[in-house]
């Protein structure tokens, strides 16, 4: 039953678990940004990425028994909010012109 004990030893969450989780969610967010054609979904993926970063901040704060992580997470949330606001304003603006918000149609700045 050795594997059970090893399993148990992995059972309790350690710092690594939290970090792995945050990395996973970050990657999923990243893929979402790169793959989805709808602007809104892209913004949501960005929110995901921001959240995963927050998680890693918090887990490190917990690991070090300090509150800096929390402050930073707090700032990130503020920024995320501001960013979301501006992003959505842009989306509306774009929608008004192009009747669609697909990212790959917005190529005017190509040249």
């Amino acid at each position: 039953m050795a594997w059970v004990s090893t399993l148990i030893s992995y059972w309790e969450p350690t710092l690594a678990h939290y970090l792995l989780l945050s990395a996973a969610v970050f990657s999923i967010g990243l893929i979402g940004v790169m793959v989805r054609r709808n602007a809104l979904i892209v913004f949501m993926s960005i929110e995901l990425m921001l959240n995963s970063v927050n998680l890693s901040f918090i887990s490190f704060a917990r690991y070090r028994f300090e509150m800096d992580g929390h402050v930073f997470a707090f700032f990130i949330m503020a920024v995320a909010a501001a960013e979301a606001a501006v992003a959505l304003a842009i989306v509306i603006h774009v929608f008004r012109h192009k009747r669609g918000v697909n990212v790959d149609e917005m190529q005017e700045l190509k040249y």
């Binding site: 913004f43 917990r62 992580g69 929390h70 997470a73 949330m77």
Partner: peptide, 24 residues
């Protein structure tokens, strides 16, 4: 919460869930 960051859990729900997602 599990990481004993209670304030942030609340803020998380408030800011993200409440504000940003509502906006979305």
């Amino acid at each position: 919460v599990l990481l004993s960051a209670h304030f942030l859990a609340v803020v998380q729900i408030l800011v993200y869930g409440g504000a940003i997602m509502v906006l979305f």
